[in-house]
Design a protein around this nucleic acid. Structure first.
Length: 834
DNA sequence: GAGTTTGAAACT
DNA sequence: CAGTTTCAAACTC
């Protein structure tokens, strides 16, 4: 069962969490480092090279997915459910570690924060363990504190963070502890041992142990699967199973409110699965029906359904629709199952494990390019993270408002919360509609609904006629979802039946433009006060990543992507007569120019004036996403341990428009250094394109890239494996470090070959996160080790996971991002502090 | 609901 | 890579 790849059998560990490799890693983690990858930009083959998370595995045929899911369900989920069902609470029947592993996994990613105050000590009895029980219940209630974190624990309340690091830190600690608790609980379960933990013990729990155990379990679990699919399974488990498993784990008996026997849910689930197997087509009536039912239930039960439930259901819907999910092995079945059960439960009782699920999902935060976000109500305000404001629309207030409010506390919400607003439905997360409500409605009507905001849940679907829904013109395709009934498209190939075509096309598009499927707008957090932005305007950190090119709409209509996304225009925009109510570009122009000039002049990145920095900061915040370029190439586990050379960033290269060609050279190198030179806004805007150059630059640390004027129309694919950090801040050097492979977590020395850096203060050994769930740990640890850092968003693109880390500095908020393809993660500094 | 406008995406 | 065309959403009537 053990995976050779990973040292499942790692040494356990240190007695204290702080001693664990994770902590060590994090502690040493420097804001960045790229990995080099063997990724060959030129060919799609590069993708193919991905091991664990190889695309192939990710994008499996529907059949495969179904099969996998089925297997998963049977093996792990099914086992769990059975155990629960049969045992009324006694989990003694619980099978296999696999199931446990799954749970661990889920737990790992699912941990919530404040809401769970339960102590592990209570967990003596796994079956009835208080911890388990506690979670669901707490989640449900949506207590004010209900800051649940998404599964991954992604993130935390930015505001808190912003306002009070200490608080945040504590929160995080709590989270960590909770996680520990979960881990320990799980471990015990696995071992069959008595739960040892008490709250105190929890603290004493070693991360290493937890991690290793978890890993081991996971591995074991995985072993049952094809290696090829492990990664995705894990992901699937994490995301989809998280809630479900967790709930199961908690046990039916545990939650009195659960009128719905898990058994029924299970049955239902199984039925669904069966159906899925048969139909395979997500759009099939079965699914639709179930979805509808769910929705109906939700609405009907509306009164008694906790806020969270709604939100969750929405999210689930979103997930379901996401191709990535499906590709990733999240089959509709799974989702549906989850959804169904959750919903059913929720319907009956407001409280339930249901809530747990969503969190997990949230944490994973698949990103859909939501296109639907309407400015109404000023989306900017919608950014929970940033402003905490709610959408103005009434309908949305109902759902979204809650969602958002809840989201504020969700750490990871970053990703999803941020993105959800954009999509009314598909991306947005008001999934339900997808298959349901919209059926009878014409696309236009649907669209109208969305627009009106009356129907927050309205689904907006495409009406493509010539593109076959295989181009970015197609909103569905762009959002990473299959077209469905609500769509009025013609000749549509964006359907599960044509999965291969779809995936292939997506690959091509992504190859051409790595950010094609990335969120168009990211709202990191509000930087307002610090940056001095108008509080009413879009946070600088939330801007359209590429910028619009509006001429006649004055950026006041949805034609404008910025406006549509509820964000202000930035220097990246080339719009004319910008009147974007969320923030005008004109205001930035001057600053931008200055910065640009400075950036050009600056060769010495290390030196900076405060002014420059401030400017840079502003700029950085403006385009956080620009930095989100998938850089990391897929790695093999075996190859995952790259030795990272030191980076020093003597000179920060300025990003220039990238041309894809050169980047390859760097691919061979394991590490790269980035430096940041002052970047002009232009540079920032061009980041996407610049990436290749940057990557190129990466090879030569000392080179500063000169930024060219941004055209910014198209983004060149990163041919390099390396990620680069654009320099947004003048002066400071940016160093990219590859994150070490997980083995280090297992007890290997973190010596991190990589980091000998002179410049760096870091010397973290590479940390490889094999699964997003592990990111939860990272997320949890980050704030503790680096209180100034916050993981704000985790989402998955077609080919990789990305996590955005926010760093608070006295001067503002900087954003870093980590991307991972499979095993490798890269930190990248996207912003600078003072 | 049909037709127009718009700007991103795609193409050359 | 700049310019042009295509496309579908957004918008208007």
């Amino acid at each position: 069962m053990d995976t050779p790849d990973r040292a499942a059998a790692q040494p356990p560990p240190a007695s204290r969490a702080e001693d664990s490799p994770v902590f060590s890693f994090i502690n040493n983690l420097s804001p960045i480092e790229p990995l080099k990858s063997a990724y060959n930009a030129n060919s799609l083959q590069g993708y193919q090279s991905i091991n664990i998370t190889s695309i192939s595995s990710i994008f499996t045929s529907p059949h495969d997915n179904v099969h996998k899911e089925t297997r998963l369900a049977k093996s792990s989920l099914g086992g769990i459910s059975e155990g629960e069902v049969s045992a009324d609470g006694s989990k003694t029947n619980k099978p296999a570690k696999s199931s446990n592993a799954v749970r661990l996994f889920a737990c790992t990613s699912t941990v919530t924060q404040e809401t769970r105050t339960v102590t592990c000590s209570d967990v003596a009895d796994p079956p009835t363990g208080p911890c388990d029980l506690a979670q669901p219940a707490q989640f449900d209630n949506g207590s004010p504190d209900h800051n649940t974190t998404p599964c991954h624990g992604v993130r935390s309340d930015l505001k808190q963070y912003k306002c009070r690091k200490l608080d945040v830190v504590q929160t995080v600690k709590n989270t960590v502890e909770k996680r520990k608790c979960l881990f320990s609980t799980e471990i015990q379960l696995l071992d069959g041992g008595q739960p040892v933990n008490d709250s105190d013990d929890v603290l004493g729990c070693e991360w290493s142990d937890l991690i290793s155990t978890t890993s081991g379990e996971l591995l074991a679990f995985e072993s049952t699967m094809d290696d090829h699919h492990r990664g995705m399974h894990l992901a699937a488990k994490n995301a989809e199973s998280c809630g479900y498993l967790l709930s199961k784990l908690t046990g039916d008996g545990e939650i009195p409110d659960r009128a719905h026997p898990s058994a029924s849910g299970q049955v239902f689930y199984q039925e669904l699965v069966m159906g899925e197997d048969q139909t395979e087509n997500p759009q099939d009536g079965q699914e639709t029906i179930s979805t509808e039912e769910i929705q109906d239930n939700i609405y009907e039960a509306n009164g008694c359904i906790p806020l969270d439930c709604k939100v969750e259901s929405q999210q689930r819907g979103i997930r379901r629709r996401c191709l990535v999910f499906e590709a990733a092995g999240f089959s509709n079945t799974v989702v549906q199952k989850e959804t169904v059960e959750s919903l059913s439960v929720s319907t009956c009782k407001g409280k339930s494990h249901v809530q747990t699920q969503p969190r997990g999902l949230r944490g994973i935060g698949l990103h859909l390019n939501a296109l639907a976000l309407t400015p109404k109500g000023k989306m900017a305000s919608q950014d929970p993270m940033a402003s905490g404001l709610r959408p103005s629309s009434a309908s949305e207030n109902d759902v979204r408002g809650k969602f958002l409010s809840a989201g504020e506390n969700f750490p990871n919400s970053g990703g999803e919360l941020l993105e959800f607003p954009r999509d009314d439905c598909s991306a947005g997360g008001f999934p339900v509609n997808d298959h349901v409500s919209s059926q009878s409605v014409s696309p236009q009507k649907k669209r109208r609904k969305t627009d009106n905001g009356d129907d927050g849940e309205a689904c907006k679907r495409c009406s493509c006629k010539k593109s076959k829904c295989l181009k970015l013109y197609c909103e569905c395709f762009a959002a990473g979802v299959y077209c469905s009934e609500p769509c009025s498209c013609q000749g549509c190939l964006n359907k599960p039946i044509h999965e291969e075509i779809v995936l292939s096309t997506r690959k091509q598009i992504e190859f051409r433009n790595p950010l094609a499927f990335a969120p168009k707008v990211i709202r990191m957090s509000d930087a307002g006060p610090e940056t001095g932005e108008d509080p009413n305007s879009t946070p600088a950190s939330a801007r359209h990543k590429r910028g619009c090119n509006c001429k006649k709409s004055s950026c006041l209509k949805k034609y404008c992507e910025c406006y549509q996304g509820g964000v202000g225009c930035s220097s990246n925009c080339r719009c004319e007569s910008c009147k974007n109510t969320f923030g005008r570009r004109d205001a930035d122009t001057e600053l931008t120019e200055e910065i640009k000039q400075e950036g050009e002049q600056t060769e010495n990145c290390g030196k900076e004036k405060e002014n420059d920095q401030q400017k840079a900061n502003v700029q950085n915040e403006d385009h956080p996403l620009l930095d989100l370029v998938p850089i990391t190439p897929p790695f093999d586990l075996s190859s995952s341990l790259l030795k990272l050379p030191n980076f020093s960033s003597a000179k920060p290269p300025r990003p220039s428009k990238a041309r894809s060609g050169n980047s390859r050279s760097s691919a061979s190198k394991a590490t790269a250094t980035l430096q940041s030179c002052k970047s002009s806004k232009v540079a920032g805007s061009a980041i996407d394109e610049e990436m290749p150059d940057i990557l190129k630059e990466a090879d030569s640390p000392n080179n500063c890239v000169k930024t060219t004027s941004p055209n910014g129309k198209r983004v060149s694919p990163p041919h390099n494996a390396l990620s680069i950090s654009p320099n947004r801040k003048g002066g400071r050097k940016l160093i990219l470090k590859s994150i070490p492979s997980f083995p280090s977590l297992m007890g290997e020395s973190n010596s991190g070959s990589a980091m000998n850096d002179t410049d760096n203060t870091f010397s973290a050994s590479p940390l490889v996160l094999e699964h997003p769930a592990e990111w939860g740990l990272l997320e949890a640890c980050l704030p503790i080790m680096h209180p100034q850092w916050n993981a704000t968003n985790i989402y998955r693109t077609v080919t990789k996971w990305q996590m955005i880390v926010e760093e608070r500095t006295c001067k503002g908020t900087n954003h870093q991002y980590m991307s991972a393809e499979g095993l490798q993660c890269v930190w990248r500094v996207v912003g600078w502090g003072c």
